[in-house]
Amino acid sequence: MKRISVTVNGVRHEAEVEPRTLLVYFIREQLGLTGTNVGCDTSSCGACTVHLNGQSVKSCTVLAVQADGQEVTTIEGLATNGKLHPMQQAFHEEHGLQCGFCTPGMIMAAVGIVDENPDPSEAEVREALEGNLCRCTGYHNIVRAVISGAKASV
């Protein structure tokens, strides 16, 4: 077992983990933050996307021990004082989801896209979302939500 200290959504957590524990399972099972989903479990679908030191990553392909001393933000960390993050609000308003399974990962990826490109075109959003799969929506409303969320985030 390894002792790690990870700051998740601004709160520092000390924990004992097996080195083989994947970050997503640490977040879900040890911290109880189940907003981050496990989809494909093979770094393809993006449902497990979180931010590691401010950059979007697939938490099924990061070891919890690799996050030792680092900062993680999950979907639970976006809202402030009960108010949705502009990107969450945009997904709500544009109906950027159906079943909702991919949504936490989509939103975390979308926030990352806008961090790197504050005013993305539709084509840029579609390309930058290539690591996130949605099996319900056909992406149309998701792309609209990201563009709307980008404008609201300025």
Partner: peptide
């Protein structure tokens, strides 16, 4: 290569 998340790591 891959996608943005993969390129970050």
């Amino acid at each position: 290569i891959g996608d943005p998340q993969v390129r970050h790591r």
